Simulated scan of single mutants.
Amino acid sequence: MTFQPVPTLLLFLLLASANSHFALAGKRKVHIPDELDDVFDDEEDDAWREWGKKPEPSFPPSDISKLDPSQIQQEMMKRHAGPVIGFVKLRSGTRRTPDMVAEFAMKWTHVLRTGAVGVRFMGVDLNTIMFNLESIKDLEELKEFVLDQSEAYEIKMGDQFFRRPGDPPLDEVIEKHNSEKGKADNADSEEIDPNVKTEL
């Protein structure tokens, strides 16, 4: 086989011109004229126009005696800046171990921290998990997440309770469960009592 210099030289020139073309393409400059009066920019929305402006101060109502307790609590929450502590009551009637409760708390903490919500959950007992929320601004996201969990029944923060729509208060559920359990225990004891004679 003989070496043919002409095709090799042609291939080399072709590669060199392609490289120079790409090198020049990276150095091209785009010229934007200064006269942009006729350009219509419809990408700005109200949030963009408000960005960077200081928020208007919101003053508390002058007479709070006219407000009901829930409105007073909402006004206080608007001005709350520190951490918030609350409790999650788990569904009753389910057998749990301390390890299961600790696992729920750890899992919920990791998931919400992944979503940039500063919160820490800690197991208190077999039916309660305590949380420490860093900012009240994340309360809605916390409520939505926790009430979406099948293990959780309600959230308690101070005097406020948050449950799924239609769920009765936890006290009613526990009372109903205890009364049903009491009826079952009484039925069992009635079956046994007639057969047992008490001696004096």
Rank of each mutant, 00 (worst) to 15 (best):
N19F: 08
N195Y: 14
I32A: 00
E172D: 12
K78W: 09
E50C: 07
S135D: 11
H21D: 11
A102H: 08
S70R: 15
E141V: 06
N186C: 08
K197H: 09
P33D: 15
P60R: 14
A18V: 10
E199K: 10
S70N: 15
Q160F: 13
T128W: 01
F161D: 01
K89Y: 12
R91K: 14
F121S: 00
P194C: 05
P83G: 14
G182Q: 13
L139N: 00
V119H: 00
M130C: 12
V6Y: 06
A152V: 00
V88P: 01
L139K: 00
I136N: 03
G166V: 15
K107C: 09
A25L: 15
V111M: 10
P98H: 07
P33L: 15
P5E: 12
F121Q: 02
K27C: 05
E180Y: 04
K107A: 11
L36T: 15
G26P: 15
T114R: 05
Y153C: 08
S135G: 06
G115P: 08
S58R: 11
N132C: 06
T198Q: 07
D46V: 07
L126W: 02
Q71T: 05
L11W: 09
E43F: 09
A187N: 05
D46C: 07
G26R: 12
D138L: 07
E175P: 10
E154W: 08
Q74L: 04
T8I: 13
S179I: 15
F40N: 09
E190P: 05
G26V: 14
T8N: 04
W48Q: 13
V84H: 02
P83H: 08
W51F: 14
M1K: 15
E199W: 10
A184C: 04
G118H: 00
D188H: 12
D167I: 09
T8F: 10
K183R: 15
K143S: 03
E191I: 06
P55Q: 02
D138K: 09
A23D: 10
V101L: 04
G86N: 02
R163I: 06
M130Q: 15
W108D: 00
G182K: 14
S189W: 10
M130L: 12
V88K: 01
L133Y: 01
I32S: 01
F87Y: 14
T97L: 12
A116L: 04
P194S: 06
H80Y: 13
V84C: 07
Q160Y: 04
V111H: 08
I64G: 08
E180L: 13
F162V: 13
R96S: 07
A18F: 14
